[in-house]
Design a binder for these strands. Structure first.
Lengths: 247, 247
DNA sequence: CGTGTTTTTGAACCCGCTCAAGAGGAGTGG
DNA sequence: CCACTCCTCTTGAGCGGGTTCAAAAACACG
């Protein structure tokens, strides 16, 4: 966890997610409006930000760290339904009550907007509304991709798919596209992985060991992952390797 | 299949989905613009409307019937990722190439808009853009709900969940809220159900028989379903019955 | 070093899958 | 009307991947 400390990000202009978040399309004037209604909040790994059913007085962007959306049945069965990485958006304009439980999976910084004024901005500034539509469509695509993983892939393919997704997002964010091999930190516990993949934590552990034994990944310590051959990983995930990591 | 013949719906004002579709918020002036770029297309049950990877020159609303979005892996494993009922929207503004295969699950009528002019409308008329955002957020919620079904529910719960969803949508559309018992036609084959639920067709058949044996549903013929007790069905689905069918 | 947490590994079981055969319906033609 | 085909759906039997339950190992932090 390389502890991204968000050094006094007060002004949007210096914000690390300035060009990917919901504010990406805003001009300086619109940014000024956002500055007025925004505030930062930090959470430590494991902390629950919001319970399903809670009143929700803000929406937010993830600035750094990883958060997750989960749904839980009465008997405790849990399914993660969203993995929120930097620049991703939390909350639904027009909705007062949270539908999902939001948890900080790693240490986390969020840029929060008070809900009411933000909803007014949606109506008044097309740039925010348009970017939000775009991001929501992307989320929908991601959710549908995940439905294929959940519904049809084997345990091994599921693990490989998750690693591939994180590796890809990580490569985009940190521009470490030197070679074909990738190194990144897994921001998820085994339990979080199992909740994402619809598996038990034991199966996740077993399949991680198997992928390691077969040389698909190398584990440095508990969380650091090395992918020697991205194409091989994609193959294990059951996707056709279209080659382009940054598509 | 009660063969909704869409009696010469030429004008939007008479359209059965006028108040739920992407055009719901439009005033008469905006409707006139849409009329210019729209045209109807009919498909018969089983017909493929568009293959994943195809060029996509239009977006559309489902007027009557049911369509499905599916994703397929190289080895043929298939997952349905969207079930499109009347008023639902197909296609993504800004995208030229279809990501999913779209199939007419029953006989189907769609109201198509040429893509380019429609995209211009998104930018120029906030009513369309705003409604589309709202609908996309609803789709995202539905997809996430479905991730819980795919990832964590048993075969029996999956079937019950699907029946509950269709029963609910059907109740809203046709306002047959006389009693607690519901009757509707299943617009899906066993195979389509299995593709939706991440099961085999045999398991779907077995669980349908089991639900019938246990009196949760009554089958009249092959496709007509009677749900004597909606709360019971919800219970079988593993959801807490919040009672309100029309929430 | 001890305690609590996360992860790994083992062994037995079971739900849903696979493979296979049969049943039911709709349409066609004699 | 039956005979035939095609297609969807049902049912049966055995198998296997992932779960469950249990215990040990690795690690973190005082």
């Amino acid at each position: 966890m390389q502890d991204v400390v968000v050094p006094n990000v007060k002004e949007c202009v210096n914000c690390p997610i300035r060009h990917r978040a919901v504010c990406a399309r805003c001009d300086t004037e619109e940014l000024a409006l956002l500055e007025d209604i925004k505030y930062y909040r930090s959470f430590s790994a494991g902390q629950t930000i919001m319970w399903s059913g809670d009143r929700m007085d803000f929406v937010a962007s993830v600035v750094s760290g990883v958060a997750s959306l989960t749904q839980t049945m009465e008997d405790g069965r849990t399914q993660m339904v969203g993995l929120l990485l930097p620049s991703d958006f939390v909350g639904r304009p027009g909705r007062e009550i949270a539908t999902y439980t939001v948890t900080a999976t790693s240490d986390l910084v969020m840029c929060c907007f008070r809900r009411k004024p933000f909803e007014q901005m949606i109506s008044s500034t097309p740039h925010v509304a348009h970017r939000l539509l775009e991001m929501t469509l992307d989320e929908l695509d991601a959710a549908r991709e995940w439905m294929l993983v959940l519904g049809r892939k084997t345990a091994r393919e599921k693990i490989a798919s998750l690693l591939a997704i994180i590796a890809r997002r990580d490569a985009i964010l940190s521009k470490n596209t030197e070679s074909n091999s990738l190194v990144f930190d897994l921001p998820l516990t085994r339990e979080a992985m199992s909740d994402y993949l619809g598996l038990t934590l034991e199966t996740v552990s077993r399949q991680m060991s198997a992928l390691k034994k077969d040389g698909v990944v190398v584990l440095e310590g508990k969380r650091r992952i090395v992918v020697p051959d991205m194409d091989r990983l994609m193959e294990e995930a059951g996707d056709d390797s279209d080659g382009g990591i940054l598509s």
